[in-house]
Amino acid sequence: MEEDFRAALLAWTGLAAIVGDRVDWGLRNGVPAVRLQVAGKSPFYTFSGRDGLTPYIVQADCFGRDFGEAKLVARQVEAGAASLARPTFQGSFIVGERDDEDTDGADQVLHRTSLDIRILHRA
């Protein structure tokens, strides 16, 4: 799922126009950027075993130099996630959003909008 989701976000032209290729799992390389983290994973099972569908919660931290830029990145992540295609992805839904600040290595303030995205992925 991780590779498929990152590739789908990078292919979303609205996001790529803002962050370039700075969409990574666990990393923030520059600003603006998107840092992805799996916050939850719970595969579906039947009496015959796993059925291949796994719901994930992915946290997408959208960083910007100011509040507006962080929000712009988040809106493009939201649009890209909404465009995920079958059969690999069975759906994606924003289930949470919050805003806060972080600092970079030089103690410069970075603005962050975090999205919690429920993704249904078929392996």
Rank of each mutant, 00 (worst) to 15 (best):
M1Y: 12
R6F: 07
R6I: 06
R6M: 12
R6L: 13
A7G: 04
L9G: 07
L10R: 11
L10P: 06
W12E: 15
G14S: 08
A16T: 08
A17R: 13
I18F: 01
D21T: 06
R22N: 11
R22A: 15
V23T: 10
V23W: 09
W25N: 12
W25R: 00
G26E: 10
G26P: 02
L27I: 07
N29R: 15
G30E: 04
G30H: 06
G30Q: 00
V31R: 11
V31S: 12
P32Q: 02
P32N: 00
V34L: 14
V34Y: 03
R35E: 15
L36V: 08
L36N: 03
V38K: 06
V38P: 14
V38L: 12
V38R: 12
A39V: 15
G40N: 13
S42R: 15
S42E: 14
P43Y: 02
Y45Q: 13
Y45K: 08
T46K: 05
T46D: 09
S48G: 13
G49V: 05
R50N: 08
D51V: 11
G52R: 03
G52M: 05
L53W: 02
Y56V: 06
I57W: 02
I57V: 15
V58Y: 06
V58T: 02
Q59Y: 02
A60V: 02
A60P: 03
D61A: 14
D61C: 01
C62K: 05
F63R: 01
G64E: 04
D66I: 00
A70H: 11
K71L: 13
K71S: 10
L72P: 00
L72I: 09
L72V: 12
V73G: 01
V73H: 09
A74V: 07
V77Q: 11
E78T: 03
A79T: 06
G80T: 09
G80L: 05
A82S: 10
A82R: 10
S83P: 00
L84S: 03
A85S: 14
R86K: 07
P87C: 08
P87I: 09
T88Y: 11
T88H: 08
T88Q: 13
F89N: 00
F89H: 04
Q90F: 04
G91T: 09
S92T: 05
F93L: 15
G96W: 00
G96L: 03
D100V: 02
E101N: 05
E101T: 15
D102Y: 04
T103S: 12
T103A: 12
T103K: 12
D104R: 04
A106M: 07
D107K: 11
D107H: 12
Q108G: 10
Q108Y: 08
V109A: 11
L110P: 14
L110W: 04
H111L: 03
R112A: 06
R112E: 09
R112Y: 01
R112Q: 05
S114V: 13
S114H: 03
L115Q: 00
L115G: 00
R118N: 10
H121E: 05
A123K: 03
A123C: 04
A123N: 11
A123F: 05
A123Y: 05
